[in-house]
């Protein structure tokens, strides 16, 4: 009774020493190989896309001799003409940035507001009704947002302005509505992760709900809320289809918010099919794509920067 099992474990030298050629070790190795190759694949894909886009995007400058300054600041875009070609992409850069910022301006307060409502004001209702609704909204394809924009927002703007309806404003509203659920759900997660502890501390000191929200919950969640908005902006910047359907795609710089405009993405999707591979026009579109890539890196750096500050 007393020496149960002792015989099998008698030599502790064998028992505790690493087993060199067991099947356990082989399984371990197999798992490692699978996981490492998955990770390697993702890294290789990222590097490959970046390299490819960089090389293709720089062709117009290197091969076709396009002036970078002119490309970034020029106002006229007619890259496929026979005689005089001009390749000013500034209107599109401007269009992309204004759609992004205006959409964020629209989505940030609404999204954070609804997130507060969901997590702090009407918890049960928010969790049972609002949360699923928002998850559905996140999953709706952008073409649906574009269609709704086309049939509702564009006519509405047409009636209330001198323009034809297709406009920067329409793009901003459609993209704003589109990123709203993203901003809301990430913000709600951020607010939910604020520990009950410090909310209790605030209520325990006699703070009202609003005082607690303004003075404790929002400041504590600020870095994550900023991340939510930046992620929304990244999505807005890259959105092509819905924008293209409502923005009008004019190649000139818009003079007002109800003017037609174009974005980097909408120009690429509209023109890519009509160009021959390797032509100046085609190369210029790749350069526009390169700008998009650079911007997505910038967004990632911003998000990294914000979340590294959160740990302090």
């Amino acid at each position: 009774m007393s020496n149960i099992n002792h015989s099998s474990t008698s030599s502790s030298t064998h028992r505790l020493i690493k087993n060199k050629n067991g099947s356990v070790k082989r399984n371990e190795l197999r798992g490692k190989v699978v996981v490492y190759s998955c990770a390697a694949l993702i890294i290789i894909a990222t590097i490959a896309i970046t390299l490819f886009l960089t090389i293709k995007g720089l062709q117009s400058f290197i091969v076709n001799g396009v002036n970078v300054g002119e490309f970034l600041t020029g106002l006229t875009w007619s890259p496929s003409g026979e005689g005089d070609v001009s390749y000013g992409a500034f209107p599109f850069i401007f269009g992309s940035f204004s759609v992004t910022f205006l959409a964020a301006l629209f989505a940030a307060p609404l999204g954070i507001g609804s997130a507060i409502f969901m997590t702090e004001i009407a918890k049960t209702w928010g969790q049972k009704v609002l949360q699923p609704v928002i998850e559905i909204l996140v999953g709706i394809p952008s073409v649906v947002y574009g269609l709704i924009g086309l049939t509702v927002i564009v006519p509405l703007i047409r009636e209330h302005s001198s323009g034809i309806g297709f406009s920067l404003l329409a793009g901003m509203i459609v993209v704003g509505v589109m990123i709203l659920p993203t901003v809301t759900s990430i913000s709600a997660d951020a607010l939910k992760s604020i520990p009950q502890d410090i909310k209790d501390a605030s209520y325990g000191l006699g703070a009202t709900r609003w005082q607690t929200i303004y003075k404790v919950i929002l400041p504590a969640a600020m870095p994550s809320l900023a991340t939510a908005v930046v992620l929304g902006m990244a999505r807005a910047f890259g959105e092509a289809l819905a924008v293209q359907m409502v923005i009008g795609n004019s190649k000139a710089l818009p003079e007002s918010i109800t003017d037609q405009a174009a974005t980097l993405t909408s120009i690429i999707t509209l023109s890519m099919g009509h160009t021959t591979y390797g032509s100046l026009h085609n190369n210029l579109l790749w350069s526009l794509g390169l700008i998009l890539l650079v911007m997505s890196y910038v967004f990632i750096i911003i998000i990294r920067f914000i979340s590294s500050r959160r740990k302090v």
């Binding site: 502890d197 410090i198 605030s202 209520y203 000191l205 006699g206 703070a207």
Partner: peptide
Amino acid sequence: SLRKEIGMVFQEPNPFPKPIITNLTHALKF
């Protein structure tokens, strides 16, 4: 008013993630 008059301290220390002084002035401002 009740919670101002009857204060509470919890099991886990739960200071606000803010400067020491702000922790004290936080509620006074209300």
